[in-house]
């Protein structure tokens, strides 16, 4: 029975554009990014002092997110400084995760070589390329702001400390943890979303109607939580990187 389920760890290639592999996750990611950009443009054009309609919702989200980030950063100024990065991570991951639950994602596709099924769309974060990209962005930016905030010498001093043996080992641990950060960042998100996808595929395969509904609800929740976790951790790393010790 389970033979009917095809699960691929990596994203499937749909097209090859001059040597560039256009995968289904990349396509989905394009669509998510374009929809968000169009949404932001439409919203941003008519921002008024007295909010109305969709502006209320946008304000609610942004104000809520900023308030939450302020509790993590400690003060509003720091929170506002890193807000664009963190909020974009949150919004993008959230909508990417939710877009992965839309009917048709993972089910509309074609048969490659008449044998293996290749969906056109696949949940964006069920591809390590995406989560690794986000992790690299988050960690790289934390180093960038660390250098910008403390100076290159002082920032490097966190990892290469020759003043005393304890400091030296702590520095090495810090250095290793930077790579661990990238891996934990990317695999946490990938693992959660990919597992969710697999779960939905299997449940839908076993009992096609009704049974998957609670799992869809679960995926909506997990998608939100993972987006929040990614954003919060990024915020924390950014704040820690720019703090004086």
């Amino acid at each position: 029975m389970i033979e009917g389920v095809h699960i691929s760890l990596s994203a499937e290639k749909i097209l090859d554009v001059f040597g560039f592999p256009l995968t289904n996750t990349l396509l989905t990611s394009f669509l998510v990014v374009i929809s968000l950009m169009v949404g932001a443009y439409v919203l941003g054009r008519k921002i008024k002092a007295i909010p109305a309609g969709i502006q209320n919702a946008a304000e609610f989200v942004i104000d809520g997110l900023l308030g939450f980030m302020t509790t993590i950063a400690g003060d509003r100024k720091t929170a506002e400084k890193f807000f664009p990065i963190v909020a974009t991570i949150f919004i993008f991951v959230l909508f990417a995760n939710w877009a992965g639950i839309i009917p048709g994602v993972g089910s509309i596709g074609f048969y490659e070589d008449g044998k293996t099924f290749v969906p056109f769309f696949r949940s964006v974060n069920s591809d390590l390329n995406m989560t690794l990209a986000l992790a690299l962005i988050a960690v790289t930016l934390s180093h960038f702001f660390g250098v910008a905030g403390l100076g290159a010498f002082k920032h490097a001093g966190k990892f290469f400390n020759f003043k005393n043996p304890i400091g030296f080992f702590v520095g090495i641990l810090e250095f290793v943890s930077e790579f661990a950060k990238i891996i934990s960042f990317s695999f946490r998100l990938f693992g959660n979303v990919f597992a969710g996808e697999v779960l939905l595929v299997i449940i839908t395969f076993l009992v096609p109607v009704i049974a998957p509904v609670p799992f869809y609800g679960l995926e909506i929740f997990v998608g939100f939580i993972q987006a929040l976790i990614f954003a919060v951790l990024t915020m924390m790393f950014l704040v820690v990187a720019t703090k004086h010790h």
Partner: peptide, 15 residues
């Protein structure tokens, strides 16, 4: 790109 666009059209005016 998304970061840039969101920052310009959403975060900045709303904040």
């Amino acid at each position: 790109i998304l970061l840039f666009v969101l920052k310009k059209f959403a975060y900045k005016p709303i904040l």
